[in-house]
Design a binder for these strands. Structure first.
Lengths: 253, 253
DNA sequence: ATAAACCTTGACGTAACGTGAATGTCAAGT
DNA sequence: ACTTGACATTCACGTTACGTCAAGGTTTAT
């Protein structure tokens, strides 16, 4: 069964504008375009839209959703994961309700309550949970330098930006190679490498944090795929970058 | 106990940028500003921030939150209402989980499922629920023409826009008065009145819908406060506007 | 005294659309 | 065949709620 754009929008309870936007960004591409330029969607798109809406329900941003849907096409596994996350979200709402009850009791003078207890359960923790849960999965897939042209749509880069990214990547490799030979993770060259790496990472991450960055470079050391890649740049450069980042971010793991 | 901006942000798990933004829009004004220009918040702001975050959790937009917090200062009543809404949200998540389970069973071939069942429970219904639950409350407070200067901050209007709004309102009253005397809700003058009313409403509503507009003009008829107000413009003008809007929106209630 | 942490304002940018303009296409009715 | 209303397209501007950065002032701890 085929759906026009308004039919699918009505079915899913979203706007046609949303569907056009999802098409434009490559998140939900119609099954085909009619000869008159009209979008037509079929069963595969219905199912994919359902997945998208589950992720949206869990406050996952669209770029992340797109990446996640590239990582796995196992529908049952995805659905079970959504279920698990929704059960977590349910618990989080229960925590909020408990906070309300505690606050009411406090207002009535029935119990004491410290100010920090008043904010237990709010959404910021959900966003952090997303970052942890989904960020790790994305990093394992896209934190790798072998980004090819097919991913430019994902990153929504202009030609110029893509070119800039290539230059930056080349610069990063050159600088890292030279920095490794200094054997000084705290030196100027090493710290410049870190700054370049940070700039590079920001092309991929919507929400940067030093912690996440540190986790990534630690993964370069721990994961054989990345370790091998960095060995090919310069021997020992994964560990070197990890050590340099530790200083750059002023963090020790 | 007083909190600096970062202390309060950390306490609540939000950013200092968010707190500055809330100050700027008047949603959460610090208790005082220090001599050095630093913001200081006290207990009242802590409690108000908690209320704001509960509304945010329920996907209520900030302008609506601001309006709601002007309507009622009864903390216990607000908390009980949040609780009620969160319990609804919990049910909605349970519905989503049921949708997942049904979809999994469908994929496995264990049961039949129509496409429309795949979208049961998604968030758009929550947004509609907000519109109904909170919109009505806002309308009863702000859908009234007696907007005074103290509300311009709420609407975030420039001087020019405020002036335009006054002109529009005057024009609306004049046109309505003349339209009523035609006794023709479908006539040009009546339909012009509706267009003016729609333009006027859009100053207040972030998300316009003909249904909501119809509900509002119906309320003008049903609610004595508004009815009396419209009688003072021209006798019978509340019903007239309701009838004219029915034609303008192509809806019959 | 110094460095780091904290604060301010100003301003640009982002994500995910909502809205409207202008125009083409389709289907049903006259 | 023509008309009208519903449906579709692209283009483009605007909105909301911040994230991020720059530039510079203030406070705190060493």
């Amino acid at each position: 069964m085929e759906y026009s754009i308004s039919k699918l929008a009505d079915l899913a309870g979203i706007s046609t504008r949303t569907l056009r936007y999802y098409h434009e960004m490559g998140l939900l591409v119609p099954a085909r375009m009619n000869s008159n330029g009209y979008r037509l969607y079929d069963q595969k798109q219905v199912d994919r839209l359902q997945q998208i809406l589950f992720y949206r329900e869990l406050d996952v941003d669209l770029k992340t959703i797109q990446a996640l849907l590239e990582v796995s096409h196992d529908e049952i596994r995805l659905l079970q994961e959504h279920k698990h996350q929704l059960q977590n979200k349910k618990k989080h709402i229960e925590a909020l309700i408990a906070t309300i009850e505690a606050t009411i009791a406090h207002v009535r003078g029935e119990r004491m309550m410290k100010d920090n207890e008043k904010f237990i359960g709010f959404k910021q923790e959900q966003i952090k949970a997303n970052e942890e849960q989904y960020g790790e999965e994305i990093r394992s897939q896209y934190g790798h330098e072998t980004i090819d042209a097919s991913n430019t749509q994902f990153l929504n880069l202009t030609e110029k930006e893509m070119h800039d990214l290539e230059i930056l990547q080349q610069q990063l490799h050159d600088t890292l190679r030279r920095a490794v030979s200094t054997r000084n993770p705290g030196g100027d060259l090493a710290q410049e490498t870190c700054a370049l790496h940070q700039r590079w990472i920001r092309y991929y991450w919507n929400f940067y944090s030093p912690e996440a960055h540190m986790a990534l470079v630690q993964m370069y050391v721990d994961d054989e795929r990345f370790k091998a890649y960095y060995e090919s740049i310069a021997p020992g450069s994964a560990e070197f970058l990890r050590d340099a980042m530790s200083i750059f971010t002023n963090m020790t793991s």
